[in-house]
Write a protein that binds this DNA or RNA. Sequence first.
RNA 1: GCUGCUGUAGCUCAGUCGGUAGAGCGCGUCCUUGGUAAGGACGAGGUCAAGGGUUCAAGUCCCUUCAGCAGCUCCA
Length: 668
Amino acid sequence: MLTIELPDGSTRQYSQPVRPVDIAAEIGAGLAKATLAASIDGRVVGADTPLPEAGRVQLRILTKKDPEALAVMRHSCAHVMARAVMRLFPDVKLAFGPTIENGYYYDFDMPHKLTEEDFPKIEAEMARIIKADEPFERQVEPREKALALCQQLGQPFKVEHIETGLSQDPTLSFYRQGEFIDLCRGPHVPGAGKIGAFKLLSVAGAYWKGDAERQQLQRLYGTAFFSREELDAHLARLEEAKRRDHRVLGKQLELFSVNPLVGSGLILWLPRGAVIRGELENFVRGELIKRGYEPVYTPHIGRVELYMTSGHFPYYADSQFKPIEISEDERYLLKPMNCPHHIMIYKSRPRSYRDLPLRLAEFGTVYRYEQSGELGGMTRVRGFTQDDAHLFCTEEQVADEFRSCLEMTQFVLKSLGLDDYRVRLGFRDPKSDKYVGSAESWERAERALEEVCRGMNLPRLDIERGEAAFYGPKADFVVADCLGREWQLGTVQLDYNLPGAERFGLEYIGADNTPHRPVMIHRAPLGSMERFIGVLIEHFAGAFPLWLAPEQVRVLVVSEKVEAFGRQVEQRLREAGLRVTGDYRAEKIGSKIRDAQLKLVPYMLVCGAREAEQGTVAVRDRIEGDLGAMPVEAAVDKLLAEVAAKTVRKVVRSEFGGQKKDASGTDY
RNA sequence: GCUGCUGUAGCUCAGUCGGUAGAGCGCGUCCUUGGUAAGGACGAGGUCAAGGGUUCAAGUCCCUUCAGCAGCUCCA
């Protein structure tokens, strides 16, 4: 006897074998027709999956109202896409084709190079398949038969996957749809007709099983929704995200520039971008002083031997600019990190426990030779400035210092209204040999770090193996850009290795008058100025809060007759320390307002004959519009107060998740 | 680094079959002197990314390099 519990709390009992689709039909013909899949005890399955013969299960019939059903439908759409591609092109070998955050992809190996020009053809074929509405039929085979089937189908990737990734599975499932049959875990919607509005988005290379040593496949990306309206809304969101892209806004608003003659991945900060960076640096510097840090300055290069000692040179030679060679035994490296220099400042004299914790801070510019394919905008560059600091402390001080670093990072992000982030604990991958230091010191560091983090209220905290720095575990603040790509910003890293005897051999004299080894913490709340401001541009969609805005206020004169008054107002604002410009062109006021709005200037001061006579200005807020006239001094006070408070009035949220594999609808 | 796409005025882009280069915005000058998101006229501005090749002729076709974009791989 099987007892089915439905979401409304009602139960049904069956002594015959039964499938979700049968139960849906019992409830009503309408539901049966709308059924796309089912959830048994929280597990998403096809609507025709036999239910257990006995026991008690919770069943949900999934229709297009359920988010799980969308993922199932998209996976079915990926199959339809693969079927269409196989119909149109010869010798197509199928790899994986899962559902992802906002759609799906399928990887192919085929002689024809897919381009966007092929999309309409493929989409038309997909539409034909969907119109034909053939069912997705599940078929389960024992290993041997499955293997033979894949061989017979001429699908070497599927054969390999059965032999390797699925070596433990006694039976394997296939889904057939007309002439198309594919090794697939499922589930799928009952028939192709359930697929709604779809669109192919892009084609790109991808490696088989993610291994760069292996052959490269063609990955076709698409998305699908149940309705045309939802698809259009999604495409509109993508367009909106593109408009907010920091590379687009950075050019439009003249914030930064990259020039091939200077070198790719090397940012030129234009005056307006430099203002934002300068303000942020001032803000962070103020916090550092309050929190007991000591600013230092160090050079951009150092002897190769320094990085031999630190381990940077041997471990990361590939991703560094080649050394500058003066003579055979005199070579310099552009610094890839600031810590060795700061360590040498620590070592510039003997240290006592009374000196600790010692906190050395520097906006330090570092250079890393990133792979060319990785470069882009300000978020992945070859030269960047970290808001870096290194803390040297005793073992007893580690937890408090680490916690206060995390708190400072949280404070800084909160001050900018950046609260849409997750915290990733990067631990070492025990299987890898890229790390320095003993297993014991790693375990100690990871334990200490996890304990501190668990004790704080950090959003979406999770541990990721293999994400550690080579010298120690870390806590990263990760944010997504407007296209859903994740970036590490702030970071706090624990280091028991660089101070060690086999590296720099740092010491301090303890209260017991004997030498002890300090512990190091590396931390950067913003991460790098380049990446942080890139993300910030998207976060604010270019409309920065008043205290950061490159141009805070613009004086607009209604006619040239009041230019003299306008210039007086402009001068008064400049004296008050505001970043101000004036628009005295022979244009109409509406045109000047439009230009200032488009340049995202936070405030406009409109000056006409009335204002000139009364010594007032008509304040226009970029967001709220016309605020009416007020005395010049009142306007100055209002703006200065908003600057001082660092008020954040508006942010733009990222509407896209990452392109990570979805849990459901994954091919084998 | 790999695969694919792209590179034309300051910006966004058009440019047919290979036949000596175009728009809008911006910029400059002049007219207009105005009241909260585009007033009007005229004008300047190009080594068509760079180099090589095919051709009577190349922005257009081919090759190489550089750069950008998407994804993969990597990422202290």
